[in-house]
Simulated assay, not measured.
Amino acid sequence: MGILDTKDLEELEKEVIRLARSYPKETKKFLQKQGNKLKARAIKKAKSKLKEKTGNYLKGFKRGKVYKYKEEEDTVRVYNYMPHAHLIEYGHRIVGKNGKEHGFKKGHFILEEARSEFQDEFIKAADNFVDDIIKKGGF
């Protein structure tokens, strides 16, 4: 058995603290990059599913800021800020000028489908990110 020196433990502690300080900046960059990829995927999905190419719906996709979700997890949100986006996303009643209902337009669920398709790619990227952080830390 080897002898454990307290000096080695102190050096390990300093390395862990240094790694912990650099972690938030690296995480923020990583999440912003992944959010941009998800936004691009959502726009691509919207272009393929929607017949209407005019309007501002495609311009409305945004990546939000990185924030703490429930005070625990770092999160980034991709959304569409256009006032009619929820109608395209979830569907709506079709109502004539006289107020008579003519049916229901089903939603396309573009953001949900883009998120589910992107999930596997994100998990792989997150695993690589964690490996890189550990390697940079010298562990």
Rank of each mutant, 00 (worst) to 15 (best):
I3F: 07
K49N: 11
L31W: 00
M82Q: 10
G96I: 03
A125I: 08
H102N: 13
V16C: 08
Q34I: 01
N128D: 15
L38Y: 00
K62Q: 03
V130S: 12
P83G: 11
K44F: 02
E10R: 11
T27R: 01
K65A: 01
A85S: 12
G55Y: 02
K70D: 00
K97T: 08
K28Y: 00
K49W: 08
R115W: 03
K51R: 04
Y23K: 00
F129S: 14
G107E: 04
L4A: 10
D5A: 08
D74R: 12
K37I: 14
E117Q: 15
D132P: 08
F109M: 10
E113F: 06
G137H: 12
Y81E: 11
D120Y: 13
Y79A: 07
N36C: 10
K33E: 02
K7S: 14
E101L: 06
F104K: 11
G64H: 03
K65P: 04
K70Q: 04
E13G: 07
F61P: 04
Y69W: 07
F122I: 05
G64L: 02
Q119Y: 15
A42E: 04
R93K: 12
E13I: 15
N98H: 05
V78K: 01
L87N: 05
K68L: 11
L58G: 09
E72R: 03
E71S: 04
K7D: 15
S48Q: 02
I123W: 15
G60K: 02
A20P: 06
G96E: 09
S22C: 01
G60M: 05
H84I: 05
L12S: 10
K62D: 02
F129K: 07
I94Q: 10
N80K: 04
E121D: 15
D127R: 15
K49V: 13
R21F: 00
T75N: 04
K45L: 14
E73M: 06
K51Q: 12
K44W: 07
K47W: 07
V16F: 15
M1A: 13
